[in-house]
Nucleic acid binder design. Structure first.
Ligand SMILES: [Mn+2]
Ligand SMILES: [Mn+2]
Ligand SMILES: [Mn+2]
Ligand SMILES: [Mn+2]
Lengths: 215, 215
DNA sequence: TAATTTTGTTTTGCTAATCTAACTTTATAG
DNA sequence: CTATAAAGTTAGATTAGCAAAACAAAATTA
């Protein structure tokens, strides 16, 4: 078994690799808020366990085994978020923090039961795909709202920021997954996007638009 | 905040004090499967945090603060067991192991939601009382089945062993909480109890009868 | 290409949780 | 009331996870 700390490192490596392609010690260090020497020594430990390919001064890379382990943690996290929302009645801005802890529970029985009760959901409340029991993960390539052009009509399918501050910002604007918006303007200078949906018109800053994925 | 380890020590101290009155380092050591020197040093740490009264060579005792902390962990454990059974559909022999981990989740929101969904249950699936948010715990004084006499009719209200082996033994005999049994015989020599319930007759060993609490 | 800055590693050291071996205190038996 | 046994503590190690300081490599700039 892996420790909670190890699981968090694996998950972070998976996310950062997905997001940036290449992960350096410094990037991981900042992401986890852990100093570089600590990260270096953890990478050596994970390399000993054959979960990470590690060579001094080279980018970090999960091994095949490491990817699988990371995905099992991600699976537990996302199933939990879905469970918290659908079964327990939490709202989408409350689930991430709790899931951050429950993802480390060691009980296949527990998570399989969640999966069953939820009828094998494909995505979590933020639109991120849930890996299956085999660790397979289908990542649909979605565009950012901030990359859309005037007059396009798109559906909000996922958010890449799960902090409660961000989600409450969306709540105020009644933006949820599934909301279909039409872009009526993109500001030349600051790239603020103006969208229309459900008979409303709202402006979305470039920062926020960059964290909304659409289809 | 306390570590998982500290929480487990506090819970163990609470249970053993309830069961034995006085708790020694050796008893706690055996119960937790941790060597005595380790227990001694943890007791010193908990004493520094004012959770335990500790004096060399004297019995261990939780402080008022320690009792409260212990009960909050017990509350989380028992709410979780109830939730696993009633909401998720686990059986009573599956819940303890999972609850042993979830009891360490730090999220009042999460446990309050469980409490609400369960409509503020008074006891867990094994009949043990659930402390309230203030840490108050009503312990009804129940008798052991093994202490009952011939011709008494009593209701099974709680079990003091929550291992799956023990509970499956009861499952085979269709003994659940609420089962009303009449004692038809107590063996003179080995104290095996013969009981009748639901038109069936079964023998219950002294060992098992000592772990069934009745009213 | 040489100097400087940035990035990453090594060394050293800390706290938490555990153990074994040696020692001390308390309890028990003769 | 000693002598022995049982229970508990102290001392010294180990492993996990972390960080500060010193050092080394790589990247950038001039
Ligand atoms: Mn999340
Ligand atoms: Mn986590
Ligand atoms: Mn239990
Ligand atoms: Mn526990």
């Amino acid at each position: 078994m892996n420790t909670v700390t190890e699981e968090n490192y694996l998950k972070a490596l998976h996310h950062l690799a997905d997001e940036l392609g290449e992960v350096n010690v410094g990037v991981l260090s900042k992401h986890l808020n852990i100093k570089m020497p600590t990260v270096t020594s953890m990478m050596k430990k994970l390399a000993d366990k054959e979960l990470v390919h590690y060579e001094s001064y080279k980018p970090l890379k999960l091994t095949e085994k490491g990817v699988l382990k990371a995905r099992m943690v991600i699976r537990k996290h996302r199933l939990t978020e879905m469970f918290l929302e659908k079964v327990m009645g939490f709202s989408w801005e409350e689930v991430h923090e709790i899931a951050e802890q429950i993802e480390h529970i060691n009980s296949p029985l527990f998570f399989d039961k969640m999966d069953e009760l939820l009828e094998y959901p494909k995505a979590d409340p933020h639109g991120s795909p849930i890996p299956n029991r085999a660790g397979e993960l289908v990542m649909e390539k979605l565009r950012k709202l901030s990359d859309c052009l005037v007059n396009e009509t798109v559906e909000i399918c996922a958010v890449t920021n799960t902090t409660s501050g961000f989600l409450q910002h969306l709540n105020l604007r009644a933006i949820t997954l599934g909301t279909v918006v039409t872009i009526t303007n993109v500001d030349d200078y600051d790239k603020t996007v103006t969208v229309t949906y459900n008979e409303k018109t709202t402006t979305i800053s470039a920062m926020v638009g960059g964290q909304l994925l659409v289809r």
